[in-house]
Design a protein around this nucleic acid. Structure first.
Lengths: 344, 344
DNA sequence: TTGAAAGCGCTAACAG
DNA sequence: CTGTTAGCGCTTTCAA
């Protein structure tokens, strides 16, 4: 009886699972050689490699990545933590990441915090337990426990979405500047009574930062900067409802600066249904640059953010870091573009 | 020197990593008792449990899930494989799954096949290597290698989206019936010259199944069932462009049955821009029941599918199975609802 | 309720 | 280029 195929009573082996040792035995080599043939093909002779691969095929061997990760303390797992999957913005970032990472043989562990920093901490703990190769998280805000945990982690951490003092790598855009930019555009267009509408700004604090920029710009011009904060999540429906609210609370409003395109498009379509002319009766602006905004009439004025590109770039930087290259930038400003439509 | 803290030269331990043994030692118990205190709290005395938890806290212990999974061959990892992340339909299913699974302490390994069955096979192989507790995959089509691999896997497999002869568990709806239903509605409305427009039906074969139902219904009424297949993915833009194409290829068309709401909404908005009246000049119908359809004017006639609910139900059935309950149904028909708008 | 011993399947380290 | 040895950190099995 071979030592590779224990039969003693205490064995806990899954009976059906084909192991690397079996493959090695079938190929007439040692387990470590079989391991090399699969993971470092160049460190093994061609003939050895081929006979190992043949045995793999014949036996239907599926590598046990759990065992491999434990032994090597590397996992090719990348944790991605987002605050929401409803918001298409995060999905697009995931898409950009996923596309690039999967092509390089990394797998994605996905977590959703629902905008809860304690939940984020729990997810981070779990993901560290999986020996992830890197962690991607949306935003720069974390609780203390989370920061402590990550402080000495030793693997790349990528914080995406907004720009600032990150823990490690950081890719995003300046939301305050974006808010300022749109406010400036509205003022330029001649609007003076401008309301900002956002949804749950304590959660979606990046929308809050845009409001801050907006407010600063308006104050600088001697204008008031009223804010309507909705208690629901951003959606077409919420946008439609907010329009009525704004017109009730601030009847003289000339323009509404929405925190995102969903809200803005919802309001725009609602305005149309009510026979209001956009932008003559009310001007509407959004943020994100969703395709929808360019298909409705009038076209939505918005700020385009390169979300998928942000995900791709984040993935590229991570891969560069993970492959030991030291030539990388700690921070990337992906910028934004004011897209002037016909709604302002 | 304790045997739990080896100092010999061959040790491969990560110096900083706190292990369960260290926690156990600090708490004055054996490693296995510490393990039980964390994973089976009821199998340990209250005082032991508390002192272990205290040591965990004090030392900042983070369980190594890789080691735990190897030892127990259980991982609390659920693999989700979808063909696309652009299509919001899959994202909503992921959301439903994620919400339910994460609440039960499962983590999600996400894979994207890009509608490629060979890629799916690779992903499945990788995920099996992670000792996933279960696998969720979109659709019933897989290649032979994939089927072989999964045939004796021994863990729950959930195939979502369409209904049919699944490998294990199956949740979805009857797409052929949905296509028939919408065709029937259009005929009822008095339309006779109806074009079906889909995007890449060999990839999005569920849209192809809906076309089949559509065609059958039309043929049964003695009507032709012309098909326009687009080479791009479904999007507002593609929908807008397809409208012109249909009007060119089939000038007498009275109604267009689109494979999904993105295409339909794109066409509807394009029609408006061109001054075409919907449904008088051209009727438009979609599939999915996206919110957008209910916010444009005229409201889009569509078929509502319960996508998030499908994800949630799938997760619930999986959890039921994983917790050893035998009371579960192999197949769930989540149905669909014809939502008659003003666009037909 | 607790512990001792023995692995889970793989790879790092070192030697040849 | 290949093999030997010894773990990775945890949980199973069995015994007390």
């Amino acid at each position: 009886m071979s030592k590779d195929l224990p039969t003693n009573a205490k064995s806990r082996r899954r009976p059906e699972q084909v192991t690397l040792s079996q493959v090695a035995q079938a190929a007439g080599v040692s387990p470590i050689t079989a391991s090399r043939a699969l993971n470092h093909p160049d460190k093994v002779s061609t003939s050895t490699r081929q006979s190992v691969l043949q045995s793999v095929e014949r036996l239907g061997y599926v590598p046990n990545l759990v065992a491999g990760s434990l032994a090597s303390s590397r996992s090719r797992l990348i944790a991605i933590i987002v605050p929401s999957l409803i918001n298409s913005v995060f999905v697009e970032i995931i898409k950009g990441l996923q596309e690039t990472l999967e092509a390089q043989g990394y797998q994605i562990l996905l977590g959703n915090t629902d905008y809860d920093l304690d939940r984020e901490y729990q997810l981070v703990r779990t993901f560290l337990g999986w020996s992830c190769s890197a962690l991607v998280t949306a935003g720069l805000r974390h609780n203390d426990a989370c920061r402590t945990l990550l402080a000495n982690w030793g693997h790349p951490i990528m914080e995406v979405m907004e720009l600032g003092k990150g823990m490690d790598l950081n890719i995003g855009l300046d939301h305050t500047a974006a808010g300022r930019c749109m406010a400036n555009h509205l003022i330029d267009r001649g609007y003076q009574r401008i309301v900002y509408v956002g949804a749950r700004l304590s959660h979606d604090y990046r929308a809050g930062m845009r409001y801050l920029g907006h407010k600063k710009m308006l104050k600088a011009k001697g204008l008031e900067a009223p804010l309507l904060e909705l208690n629901t999540l951003g959606s077409l429906q919420a946008g439609a409802e907010s329009l009525a609210q704004v017109l009730k609370d601030y009847p003289a409003t000339q323009a509404i600066h929405f925190a995102n395109d969903d809200l803005a498009a919802g309001a725009l379509l609602a305005a149309q249904r009510q026979g209001l002319s956009v932008p003559d009766d009310i001007a509407i602006a959004g943020f994100n640059g969703l395709p929808l905004g360019q298909h409705i009439t009038p076209k939505l004025t918005t700020i385009l953010s390169p979300r998928e590109a942000m995900g791709r770039l984040a993935a590229q930087e991570l891969i560069r870091r993970l492959s030991g290259k030291s030539v990388y930038r700690r921070q990337h400003d992906v910028g934004f573009t004011l897209q002037v439509g016909e709604s302002t």
